[in-house]
Simulated assay, not measured.
Amino acid sequence: MATEMRAEVTVIIVSYNTAQLTIKAIDTLYANTRETRFDCVVFDNASQDNSAALIRAAFPHVRVMASDQNIGFAAANNHVAGASETPYFLLLNPDTETHPGAVDALVKFAKSRPKAGIWGGRTVFADGLLNIASCWAIPSLRSLFFRAFGISALFRRSAFANPEAYGGWQRDSIREVDIVVGCFLLIGRPLWQELGGFQRKYYMYGEDADLCLRARGLGYRSCMTPDAQITHHVGASTRQSEEKTILVMKARASIIRDHWPHWKVGPGIALMWLWAALRYVASRPFTRCRRASADHWRAVWARRAEWLRGYA
Protein backbone atom coordinates (compact mmCIF):
# COMPACT_ATOMS: atom_id res chain seq x y z
CA MET A 1 0.00 0.00 0.00
CA ALA A 2 1.73 3.15 -1.20
CA THR A 3 -0.12 6.27 -0.15
CA GLU A 4 0.59 9.93 0.30
CA MET A 5 0.59 9.38 4.06
CA ARG A 6 3.95 8.85 5.64
CA ALA A 7 5.18 5.27 5.40
CA GLU A 8 5.90 3.37 8.61
CA VAL A 9 8.01 0.62 7.00
CA THR A 10 10.79 0.68 4.43
CA VAL A 11 10.91 -2.66 2.64
CA ILE A 12 14.48 -3.31 1.50
CA ILE A 13 15.13 -5.84 -1.27
CA VAL A 14 18.71 -6.55 -2.32
CA SER A 15 18.80 -8.15 -5.76
CA TYR A 16 21.54 -9.91 -7.71
CA ASN A 17 20.71 -11.49 -11.07
CA THR A 18 17.17 -12.31 -9.96
CA ALA A 19 15.13 -9.94 -12.15
CA GLN A 20 12.00 -12.04 -12.64
CA LEU A 21 12.00 -13.33 -9.08
CA THR A 22 12.41 -9.81 -7.74
CA ILE A 23 9.52 -8.58 -9.88
CA LYS A 24 7.35 -11.37 -8.45
CA ALA A 25 8.46 -10.49 -4.92
CA ILE A 26 7.47 -6.86 -5.40
CA ASP A 27 4.20 -7.79 -7.09
CA THR A 28 3.10 -10.03 -4.21
CA LEU A 29 4.31 -7.48 -1.65
CA TYR A 30 1.99 -4.79 -3.02
CA ALA A 31 -0.87 -7.17 -3.78
CA ASN A 32 -0.94 -8.73 -0.30
CA THR A 33 -0.18 -5.79 1.98
CA ARG A 34 -3.45 -4.05 2.75
CA GLU A 35 -3.01 -2.09 5.98
CA THR A 36 0.65 -1.18 6.34
CA ARG A 37 1.97 2.01 4.76
CA PHE A 38 5.34 1.22 3.26
CA ASP A 39 8.00 2.31 0.81
CA CYS A 40 9.85 -0.29 -1.23
CA VAL A 41 13.51 0.19 -2.16
CA VAL A 42 15.46 -2.23 -4.34
CA PHE A 43 19.25 -2.17 -4.19
CA ASP A 44 20.68 -3.97 -7.21
CA ASN A 45 24.15 -5.40 -6.63
CA ALA A 46 25.58 -4.99 -10.14
CA SER A 47 23.33 -7.63 -11.73
CA GLN A 48 24.10 -8.71 -15.28
CA ASP A 49 20.53 -9.61 -16.20
CA ASN A 50 19.26 -6.03 -16.64
CA SER A 51 17.50 -6.26 -13.27
CA ALA A 52 17.49 -2.55 -12.47
CA ALA A 53 15.93 -1.49 -15.78
CA LEU A 54 13.34 -4.28 -15.73
CA ILE A 55 12.27 -3.50 -12.17
CA ARG A 56 12.02 0.23 -12.88
CA ALA A 57 9.87 -0.48 -15.94
CA ALA A 58 7.56 -2.82 -14.04
CA PHE A 59 7.24 -0.63 -10.93
CA PRO A 60 7.82 3.08 -11.58
CA HIS A 61 6.83 3.88 -7.98
CA VAL A 62 9.57 1.66 -6.49
CA ARG A 63 12.93 3.29 -5.83
CA VAL A 64 15.71 1.30 -7.49
CA MET A 65 19.32 1.92 -6.51
CA ALA A 66 21.72 0.35 -9.00
CA SER A 67 25.29 -0.26 -7.87
CA ASP A 68 28.13 -0.63 -10.37
CA GLN A 69 29.74 -3.25 -8.12
CA ASN A 70 28.53 -6.04 -5.87
CA ILE A 71 29.01 -4.64 -2.37
CA GLY A 72 27.34 -7.59 -0.64
CA PHE A 73 24.09 -8.05 1.25
CA ALA A 74 25.14 -6.35 4.47
CA ALA A 75 26.52 -3.16 2.93
CA ALA A 76 23.57 -2.87 0.54
CA ASN A 77 21.03 -3.01 3.36
CA ASN A 78 23.09 -0.55 5.40
CA HIS A 79 23.12 1.87 2.48
CA VAL A 80 19.35 1.85 2.02
CA ALA A 81 18.56 1.94 5.75
CA GLY A 82 20.93 4.84 6.25
CA ALA A 83 18.88 6.93 3.84
CA SER A 84 15.48 5.90 5.25
CA GLU A 85 13.55 7.44 8.13
CA THR A 86 10.62 5.11 8.67
CA PRO A 87 10.08 3.60 12.15
CA TYR A 88 10.69 0.08 10.83
CA PHE A 89 12.84 -1.64 8.23
CA LEU A 90 11.71 -4.91 6.64
CA LEU A 91 14.42 -6.94 4.97
CA LEU A 92 12.89 -9.08 2.24
CA ASN A 93 14.74 -11.45 -0.07
CA PRO A 94 14.22 -11.09 -3.82
CA ASP A 95 13.34 -14.79 -4.10
CA THR A 96 10.26 -14.54 -1.88
CA GLU A 97 6.52 -14.28 -2.40
CA THR A 98 4.54 -12.51 0.29
CA HIS A 99 1.34 -14.23 1.39
CA PRO A 100 -1.89 -12.27 2.03
CA GLY A 101 -1.60 -10.11 5.14
CA ALA A 102 1.94 -11.27 5.96
CA VAL A 103 3.50 -7.83 6.32
CA ASP A 104 0.44 -6.47 8.10
CA ALA A 105 0.57 -9.34 10.61
CA LEU A 106 4.31 -8.93 11.17
CA VAL A 107 4.02 -5.20 11.85
CA LYS A 108 1.10 -5.75 14.25
CA PHE A 109 3.13 -8.44 16.00
CA ALA A 110 6.08 -6.06 16.35
CA LYS A 111 3.91 -3.40 17.93
CA SER A 112 2.51 -5.95 20.40
CA ARG A 113 6.01 -7.12 21.41
CA PRO A 114 8.29 -4.08 21.29
CA LYS A 115 10.88 -5.62 23.63
CA ALA A 116 11.71 -8.28 21.04
CA GLY A 117 13.44 -5.67 18.87
CA ILE A 118 13.59 -8.01 15.86
CA TRP A 119 10.65 -9.96 14.47
CA GLY A 120 10.23 -12.69 11.87
CA GLY A 121 7.59 -14.91 10.32
CA ARG A 122 7.09 -18.38 8.92
CA THR A 123 8.54 -19.46 5.57
CA VAL A 124 7.41 -22.24 3.26
CA PHE A 125 8.71 -23.70 0.02
CA ALA A 126 6.93 -23.27 -3.31
CA ASP A 127 4.98 -26.50 -2.70
CA GLY A 128 3.68 -25.17 0.61
CA LEU A 129 5.81 -27.40 2.81
CA LEU A 130 7.52 -25.86 5.81
CA ASN A 131 10.90 -24.25 5.27
CA ILE A 132 12.51 -24.28 8.73
CA ALA A 133 15.17 -21.76 7.69
CA SER A 134 13.26 -18.71 8.89
CA CYS A 135 15.11 -18.84 12.20
CA TRP A 136 17.93 -20.65 13.99
CA ALA A 137 19.45 -21.10 17.41
CA ILE A 138 23.04 -20.03 17.93
CA PRO A 139 25.54 -22.87 17.31
CA SER A 140 26.79 -24.64 20.42
CA LEU A 141 29.44 -27.26 21.16
CA ARG A 142 26.65 -29.83 21.37
CA SER A 143 25.11 -28.83 18.05
CA LEU A 144 28.49 -28.79 16.29
CA PHE A 145 29.38 -32.22 17.70
CA PHE A 146 26.07 -33.75 16.58
CA ARG A 147 26.41 -32.05 13.20
CA ALA A 148 29.97 -33.28 12.65
CA PHE A 149 28.95 -36.90 13.21
CA GLY A 150 25.66 -36.68 11.29
CA ILE A 151 23.52 -37.17 14.39
CA SER A 152 21.50 -34.00 13.82
CA ALA A 153 20.71 -35.17 10.27
CA LEU A 154 19.55 -38.56 11.54
CA PHE A 155 17.33 -37.04 14.24
CA ARG A 156 16.10 -33.86 12.58
CA ARG A 157 12.95 -33.71 14.70
CA SER A 158 14.82 -33.97 17.99
CA ALA A 159 15.25 -30.70 19.86
CA PHE A 160 18.18 -32.27 21.71
CA ALA A 161 20.04 -33.72 18.72
CA ASN A 162 19.19 -30.89 16.32
CA PRO A 163 19.12 -27.78 18.55
CA GLU A 164 20.19 -25.20 15.95
CA ALA A 165 17.08 -25.98 13.88
CA TYR A 166 14.80 -26.14 16.94
CA GLY A 167 14.15 -29.73 15.91
CA GLY A 168 10.50 -30.72 15.91
CA TRP A 169 9.09 -27.20 16.07
CA GLN A 170 6.91 -26.52 13.04
CA ARG A 171 7.16 -22.72 13.36
CA ASP A 172 3.45 -22.82 14.17
CA SER A 173 3.57 -20.91 17.46
CA ILE A 174 4.92 -17.63 18.80
CA ARG A 175 8.41 -18.19 20.14
CA GLU A 176 11.56 -16.33 21.12
CA VAL A 177 14.50 -17.36 18.94
CA ASP A 178 18.20 -16.57 18.81
CA ILE A 179 18.32 -15.67 15.11
CA VAL A 180 15.72 -14.38 12.67
CA VAL A 181 16.91 -14.99 9.11
CA GLY A 182 17.28 -11.91 6.89
CA CYS A 183 14.97 -13.21 4.17
CA PHE A 184 12.02 -11.81 6.16
CA LEU A 185 13.24 -9.73 9.08
CA LEU A 186 11.60 -6.69 10.64
CA ILE A 187 13.59 -4.38 12.90
CA GLY A 188 12.89 -1.01 14.47
CA ARG A 189 14.98 1.88 13.19
CA PRO A 190 16.20 2.94 16.69
CA LEU A 191 17.63 -0.52 17.35
CA TRP A 192 19.13 -0.71 13.86
CA GLN A 193 20.86 2.60 14.48
CA GLU A 194 22.02 1.56 17.95
CA LEU A 195 23.59 -1.57 16.47
CA GLY A 196 25.05 0.33 13.52
CA GLY A 197 23.20 -1.97 11.11
CA PHE A 198 24.95 -5.02 9.75
CA GLN A 199 28.67 -5.50 10.28
CA ARG A 200 30.06 -5.06 6.80
CA LYS A 201 32.66 -7.79 7.26
CA TYR A 202 29.81 -10.29 6.87
CA TYR A 203 29.80 -10.03 3.10
CA MET A 204 27.23 -12.78 2.60
CA TYR A 205 25.59 -15.05 5.20
CA GLY A 206 25.85 -14.62 8.95
CA GLU A 207 25.06 -10.91 9.00
CA ASP A 208 21.52 -11.56 10.26
CA ALA A 209 22.79 -13.93 12.97
CA ASP A 210 25.36 -11.38 14.12
CA LEU A 211 22.74 -8.61 14.15
CA CYS A 212 20.31 -10.66 16.26
CA LEU A 213 23.00 -11.80 18.68
CA ARG A 214 24.27 -8.26 19.17
CA ALA A 215 20.67 -7.18 19.85
CA ARG A 216 20.40 -10.03 22.34
CA GLY A 217 23.44 -8.64 24.10
CA LEU A 218 21.48 -5.42 24.64
CA GLY A 219 18.60 -7.31 26.23
CA TYR A 220 16.33 -7.80 23.21
CA ARG A 221 14.81 -11.20 22.43
CA SER A 222 14.03 -11.80 18.75
CA CYS A 223 10.64 -13.37 18.22
CA MET A 224 8.73 -15.30 15.55
CA THR A 225 5.02 -15.39 14.67
CA PRO A 226 3.27 -17.99 12.48
CA ASP A 227 0.70 -15.40 11.41
CA ALA A 228 3.14 -13.77 8.96
CA GLN A 229 4.02 -16.23 6.21
CA ILE A 230 5.93 -16.03 2.94
CA THR A 231 7.21 -18.41 0.28
CA HIS A 232 11.00 -18.48 0.00
CA HIS A 233 12.64 -19.89 -3.13
CA VAL A 234 15.93 -20.62 -1.41
CA GLY A 235 19.34 -19.78 -2.83
CA ALA A 236 18.32 -18.26 -6.14
CA SER A 237 21.25 -15.84 -6.25
CA THR A 238 23.95 -18.30 -5.08
CA ARG A 239 24.08 -21.24 -7.47
CA GLN A 240 27.56 -22.70 -7.00
CA SER A 241 27.04 -25.21 -4.20
CA GLU A 242 30.65 -25.44 -3.02
CA GLU A 243 30.94 -21.64 -3.01
CA LYS A 244 27.79 -21.36 -0.93
CA THR A 245 29.05 -24.00 1.51
CA ILE A 246 32.32 -22.13 1.92
CA LEU A 247 30.55 -18.81 2.52
CA VAL A 248 28.18 -20.36 5.06
CA MET A 249 31.07 -22.01 6.89
CA LYS A 250 33.01 -18.76 6.88
CA ALA A 251 30.02 -17.04 8.46
CA ARG A 252 29.61 -19.78 11.07
CA ALA A 253 33.26 -19.51 12.05
CA SER A 254 32.81 -15.75 12.42
CA ILE A 255 29.75 -16.17 14.64
CA ILE A 256 31.71 -18.52 16.87
CA ARG A 257 34.66 -16.14 17.09
CA ASP A 258 32.48 -13.06 17.65
CA HIS A 259 29.84 -14.40 20.02
CA TRP A 260 31.20 -17.38 21.95
CA PRO A 261 33.18 -17.20 25.20
CA HIS A 262 36.89 -17.25 24.41
CA TRP A 263 37.47 -20.68 25.96
CA LYS A 264 34.89 -22.28 23.67
CA VAL A 265 36.18 -20.86 20.40
CA GLY A 266 39.05 -23.34 19.93
CA PRO A 267 36.89 -26.47 20.44
CA GLY A 268 34.16 -24.96 18.25
CA ILE A 269 36.51 -24.31 15.34
CA ALA A 270 37.99 -27.79 15.79
CA LEU A 271 34.52 -29.33 15.45
CA MET A 272 33.95 -27.37 12.25
CA TRP A 273 37.25 -28.74 10.93
CA LEU A 274 36.15 -32.25 11.92
CA TRP A 275 32.79 -31.82 10.17
CA ALA A 276 34.49 -31.01 6.86
CA ALA A 277 37.20 -33.64 7.30
CA LEU A 278 34.69 -36.44 7.85
CA ARG A 279 32.71 -35.46 4.77
CA TYR A 280 35.82 -35.17 2.64
CA VAL A 281 37.05 -38.61 3.73
CA ALA A 282 33.59 -40.17 3.31
CA SER A 283 33.25 -38.81 -0.22
CA ARG A 284 36.53 -40.21 -1.52
CA PRO A 285 35.32 -43.80 -2.16
CA PHE A 286 32.65 -42.33 -4.41
CA THR A 287 35.00 -40.28 -6.57
CA ARG A 288 34.02 -42.14 -9.74
CA CYS A 289 30.36 -42.97 -9.20
CA ARG A 290 29.48 -39.75 -7.41
CA ARG A 291 31.85 -37.26 -8.93
CA ALA A 292 29.83 -34.15 -8.04
CA SER A 293 29.76 -34.96 -4.32
CA ALA A 294 33.46 -35.83 -4.23
CA ASP A 295 34.40 -32.65 -6.10
CA HIS A 296 32.24 -30.57 -3.78
CA TRP A 297 33.90 -31.77 -0.59
CA ARG A 298 37.36 -31.69 -2.15
CA ALA A 299 36.85 -27.98 -2.93
CA VAL A 300 35.48 -27.22 0.54
CA TRP A 301 38.31 -29.11 2.24
CA ALA A 302 40.99 -27.49 0.09
CA ARG A 303 39.83 -24.05 1.24
CA ARG A 304 39.43 -24.93 4.92
CA ALA A 305 42.05 -22.43 6.09
CA GLU A 306 40.02 -19.66 4.44
CA TRP A 307 36.65 -20.45 5.99
CA LEU A 308 38.01 -21.49 9.40
CA ARG A 309 39.45 -17.98 9.78
CA GLY A 310 36.02 -16.48 9.23
CA TYR A 311 35.55 -12.88 8.18
CA ALA A 312 38.40 -10.66 9.30
Rank of each mutant, 00 (worst) to 15 (best):
M1L: 11
A2D: 15
V9A: 00
S15K: 10
Y16F: 12
T18Q: 15
L21K: 08
L21P: 00
K24A: 14
T28Q: 03
Y30C: 11
A31G: 04
F38N: 00
V42M: 03
A46W: 03
Q48V: 01
Q48L: 08
S51P: 00
S51C: 04
L54K: 02
R56H: 05
A57L: 06
A66L: 08
D68N: 03
I71E: 05
G82E: 10
F89V: 01
L91S: 14
L91D: 06
D95F: 11
D95H: 01
E97Q: 14
T98E: 09
T98V: 15
P100W: 09
P100Y: 09
A105F: 13
L106H: 09
K108Y: 12
F109V: 01
F109G: 11
R113M: 12
P114L: 08
P114T: 09
K115L: 15
A116M: 07
I118P: 13
V124R: 06
F125Y: 07
R142S: 15
S143K: 06
F145A: 15
F145V: 12
R147V: 13
G150Q: 10
L154V: 14
R156L: 09
R157Y: 08
Y166T: 10
G167V: 07
R171T: 01
D172M: 03
R175L: 14
G182L: 05
G182W: 01
G182A: 05
C183T: 11
C183N: 14
F184K: 07
G206P: 02
D208T: 10
L211P: 04
L211A: 05
C212Q: 03
R214N: 02
A215V: 01
G217Y: 05
L218W: 08
G219K: 13
R221P: 02
T225G: 05
H232W: 05
H233N: 14
G235F: 05
Q240F: 03
S241I: 13
S241P: 09
E243H: 13
K244L: 08
K250V: 05
K250S: 11
R252K: 10
A253S: 13
S254N: 01
R257C: 00
H259V: 07
W273G: 12
Y280R: 09
A282K: 14
S283T: 01
P285C: 06
F286M: 15
R290P: 07
A292E: 12
S293T: 06
A294W: 04
R298L: 14
A305R: 15
L308A: 15
R309M: 11
Y311C: 08
Y311W: 04
